[in-house]
Amino acid sequence: MYGGGNIFEATKFDDLQTEDPAKLAEFEARIARGEKIEPTDWMPELYRKQLIRMIEQHAHSEIIGALPEGTWITRAPGFRRKMAQMAKVQDEVGHAQLLYSAAETLGKSREQMLTDLINGKSKYSNVFNYPAFTWADSNIISWLIDAGAIVNQMANAKGSYGPYSRALERICAEEAFHLKYGHDAVVHMATGSPKQREMIQAALNRWWPPIMTFFGPSDKMSTHTETLMRWKVKMASNDECRQQFLDMYVPKIWELGLTVPDPNLKKNQETGQWEFTEPDWDEFKRVINGDGPCNAERLAVRRTAEERGAWVRRALLNPKAKYVRPLA
């Protein structure tokens, strides 16, 4: 799971003038040729910083995103659903591991990333600061949040950084199951008893506003953004992702006879663009800065796991261990 890596205030625009012009030209030419950048290559500081921040936030989103669905494993209706929900949650945690490693190849340690997550220094996708009240909420997450994540991940897999692309390829392969699993769960509810339909509609109504903020506010087009696009760090604008998501999933929601709680949502046939009520970006900012219904709980749960496991890790640690960055 993942909400646009660029939704938070950008790294300070480092003056590219300070970079070695010959090396910069070589780096840019490599990307222009469609070659991937590998960890030991020379890269501009801005590239490194922006990728660390993106991949790290992506990793945090996977591991925190596992919490609202993980909470439903024991209460999932039936054995098969418990198994499937467990497999999905395990996948998400695995995604976090893959992504932490990819970020690590750029020079930030996993210890530091975990500390920064727990102390609120780095962010994760804001949607996970909302609660999953019922099993139906969990289904909406499995389907539509993962669908949003896939739009993002498919775009980013074509990015220029080798380790991130490799991780995303594995991730996308597993997401195919998440999407089908989620869709199936929602269809089951929507085509079930009136009570089930009511539950899934209520969950959709609760999740729609956070979903609309999932890709972040419209990008301010700056030289900074242009540079990141040229370097294939940012692969699509937040608005493009949102439009693509609406194009793919609104019809799938409607065909189930469900409604989207936005009276202004419609596709403008002339422009081909979806129109909708502007999401509440003030709430978005408030929640992402800590004041959401679940922020404290999410971080407390993560912190507890880290703290209570610390003695086991210390006991296992080989005194001769020496840290080296993962290779690729």
Binding site: S101, E104, S109, R110, E111, Q112, L114, T115, I118, N119, A296, E297, A300, V301, R303, T304, E306, E307, A310, R313, R314, L316, L317, N318, A321, K322, Y323, V324, R325, P326
Partner: peptide
């Protein structure tokens, strides 16, 4: 049931080196 504190908590201490082992 984890009995976690509510409200402001002091920041977690920096993780020691190799808390996450070698690779």
């Amino acid at each position: 049931r984890l009995n976690l504190p509510d409200g402001e908590v002091p920041p977690m201490e920096e993780k020691p080196e190799l808390d996450q082992f070698e690779t």
